[in-house]
Design a protein around this nucleic acid. Structure first.
Lengths: 325, 325
DNA sequence: ATGAAAGCGCTAACAT
DNA sequence: ATGTTAGCGCTTTCAT
């Protein structure tokens, strides 16, 4: 910058004004032109770090998810990034693997990097950390999972409502003996979906048929899958409360050469469209991932721009089926 | 920092020394202790931006992929991030959607943010941009796709070798009429896989049976899928050159109620393990994603730490089958 | 063992 | 319309 100024016999401030687009009519067109040209010649790039230090805004946001390799979070992140790009922000992404320590550490590092805001999928027990972010004066919006009793932005889906409607749809269509296969993870969305199932069954007087199978969470978990799925063939329908529960089961079914019964209906919370060929009757609950990603970024921008009141945005999810008729 | 110094009647330098862990024996244990305590009391966090400005190292790296919501890239990114975390780096991620302009712009922004290095999946035609990054003095490693004629780090898989072995494996097992379904995208990995197929067929005197179906690239592409897949049922086997080609086809098959022929073998380049239930004979080529992710970060670190010579790391991919016997 | 001072590259009052 | 100056928060050499 000094180089440009020297070459042109103007001051650094003038160059700064021009290059940051804040010149307006304060600098003559002639000088502006020269500055631009010289900057190009010298292959000059502003040092955003220095700029951020001075302005107090890094134009960086942090996105903390459970696991970016999970397609659901991958898609959310993608849409957040596309919005961020338009708004001139860059996105720092990090994974928690549902680990609280990891989350805390990541938050610390992100704040150290002076991010202008954070969008986070809070792992279990992270309420304090979320409150801490907010108290540090860093705008934060929680995604996918709400933080109970915390007045902070939240963007998510109506898990209970969508799951309940889907299960009742099953019941309406004559599927009565419905089992659940779920990841053994204590997080709100999964809990709500299970609760919706239990309530739906109970409201139809089918509490005796409530049947929940838990899949251990974690990659390397070795366990007896066949034991967990024992008797599943006899069910009218199976409700998988997340894509991971579904794909995990499918993969294991394949390995053990088990199969799915003929007229059985498979219901999954989350898009499993590519699996529609597997079986003649699959239904899934489709979350509006793109809208959620966009909304969470929009929320964050509102907060960064000083909007005071946090909001809670609950999206509805619709059920899709591949069944004839 | 000044606050801490004031409270303790020491200088900022002393505080800095202690807090950055460079104190060694230069500061008395007593003062060190006090500094730590006071920092905690005041809830002090170093401003990494200022530190980076001063030290010239941002501890930030950029990862540019095609599309983070694609599971392959999501997993690569995940493993890069886990390595980065260990090494004390944060990762800025961005998507190009295979668009060159987008890539160039992203590179510009990342360099402006003073990233210490970039790991990139280069979109078609990005050789110049890659060279530019390098010439700017920013360490760069290309991932998944090599840049022809550019002496820059590269981490990828032996696409040709793995595809050729997989197709010849099919031929050895008596599948002769093999068709290809591929995304219509001019990128090295996809091209190599197609070439391997053509060469394998030709080497067995089956050039007359070469049959390649192209799927338009891009989300909103509307086209006549059934036209593209016409006659596929009659083939002995179908080779999908990428997961996207595979899942896309599966999704469409499902929609149109088409099906796959009995004894047919489905071969896919990339892990489609969860689909193993679909059909009795599926093979897929499994890329060592974790190793690739780790290696690319390791490479970048080498370069950042001043290692001079770029390397090319070609991983081998193995073929997996679900067929009995 | 500790402090003073300069400076990383930029911006923004304020002055001219 | 342009320049001067101070300073963002930190590190680091050089003195003491």
């Amino acid at each position: 910058m000094q180089d440009i100024a020297d070459r042109l016999n103007v001051s650094r401030s003038t160059v700064s004004l021009v290059l940051s687009g804040k010149a307006g009519s304060r600098v003559s067109e002639e000088v502006k032109e020269k500055v631009y040209r010289t900057a190009r010649e010298l292959n000059y790039h502003v040092n955003e770090l220095a700029r951020s230090l001075r302005t107090g805004a890094s134009r960086l946001i942090g996105v903390i998810v459970t696991d970016i390799s999970n397609e659901f979070f991958g898609r959310l992140t993608f849409h957040i990034q596309e919005e961020a790009k338009k708004a001139g922000y860059l996105v720092l992404t990090a994974n928690t693997n549902e680990d609280l320590r990891d989350f805390e550490e990541t938050v610390r590092v992100l704040i150290g990097k002076q991010v202008d805001g954070i969008i986070a999928v809070p792992p279990p027990g992270s309420e304090e950390t979320i409150a801490y972010i907010r108290d540090m004066g860093v705008p934060v919006v929680t995604l996918d999972r709400a933080c109970e009793g915390l007045d902070v932005d939240y963007v998510g889906v109506d898990n209970y409502g969508a799951a309940r409607a889907a299960v009742e749809g099953l019941l309406d269509d004559g599927f009565r003996r419905i089992a659940v296969v779920a990841l053994d993870l204590d997080i709100p969305p999964l809990n709500e979906r299970r609760n919706a199932y239990e309530d739906a069954m109970t409201s139809r007087g089918l509490q005796a048929d409530i049947d929940i199978r838990l899949l251990p969470f974690g990659r390397e978990a070795t366990f007896d899958f066949s034991k967990i799925t024992k008797g599943l063939r006899e069910k009218d329908a199976v409700f998988f409360t997340s894509r991971r529960a579904f794909t995990y089961s499918m993969a294991n079914l394949a390995e053990r050469r088990l199969d799915i019964a003929e007229g059985q209906c498979l219901l999954c919370f989350d898009d499993v469209q590519p699996y529609m060929t597997i079986h003649s009757h699959i239904r899934y609950v489709e979350q509006p991932v793109e809208a959620m990603g966009r909304k969470s970024f929009e929320c964050l921008m509102d907060r960064i721009q000083g909007h005071p009141a946090p909001g809670r945005y609950l999206f509805t999810a619709k059920c899709v089926s591949n069944h004839k008729d």
